[in-house]
Design a protein around this nucleic acid. Sequence first.
DNA 1: GCAATTTATATTGCACACAATATAATTGCG
DNA 2: CGCAATTATATTGTGTGCAATATAAATTGC
Lengths: 151, 151
Amino acid sequence: MSKKDDQALQLDAQLCFPLYAASNLLTRLYRPLLDELGLTYPQYLVMLVLWEQAPASVGELSQKLYLDSGTLTPLLKRLEAAGLVRRRRSAEDERRVEVSLTPKGQALKKQAQDIPGAMGCRIGLGGEEFVNLRSELRGLMLLLGEANAKD
Amino acid sequence: MSKKDDQALQLDAQLCFPLYAASNLLTRLYRPLLDELGLTYPQYLVMLVLWEQAPASVGELSQKLYLDSGTLTPLLKRLEAAGLVRRRRSAEDERRVEVSLTPKGQALKKQAQDIPGAMGCRIGLGGEEFVNLRSELRGLMLLLGEANAKD
DNA sequence: GCAATTTATATTGCACACAATATAATTGCG
DNA sequence: CGCAATTATATTGTGTGCAATATAAATTGC
């Protein structure tokens, strides 16, 4: 086993690891803020989508968030149990489940307004750096989405 | 609720979401390759650390991978059950658990040699782009590690 | 028009992640 | 020395993530 081979398997040589670790750490950083809203981080993402455009089907949420029904179905049931969303079979297509906001779910948006700002402070990333990094991560996300779709 | 407020809560405005989605997608992309080694993605990360430096205590693994004992303990038990590592209480400090590689665990490194290259192909990221993005993600990881440590 | 295929969601089983807590070993301090 | 505080790991409980599979509704082909 040559030194070169070893190098490729070093933790520091990986792109995947800082991505993985940063994602975990960011979720952890969100937690105290989201606790006040009674949301987990993936639940927060679902609410972000719904605050922009409700109702949305499970499939639409799945496509936008890159999550499958095995993740979304129980998550949405918990949001429903919390009184934030309603799930209803579509009338035109009974296979589809439409997720809509309850008044309580809509009202929660006001409480969420401070979160992006508060997180920005906690991370302490400059405006330009923030925008650049977001753009690169968006690119990576799309790249990986395509790579996964190929198989 | 003004338009400006709305904007900050849009999914596309977030830094966190592409990070989260890219991390999930990358784990998914690793799966078929790691299945051949009988490893999950977090298990692969643990093995990367051990292939570089074994034995390592649970605490050292925890610090390097930003994972806590609640995640590592059962994961390490599964690696042990698979015959890849050994867990033993340290003689000098009985609180510590030293994780070392079995011959089978050491041998698995050879099978893992192709993985970084194969993943590089699948992602299709140029050499310079790869290095730059890795560097930025490493910076973000460290930034978030500090932000989390502050509380 | 109806059987075969496709599509949309749900269910099951396994492996993370992590907060909160528990337990046991070591250290520190009077 | 003796015991309180600290440190290292384990346990418990909840909520993801996702592959594999199941189910039911819609669509397609003949």
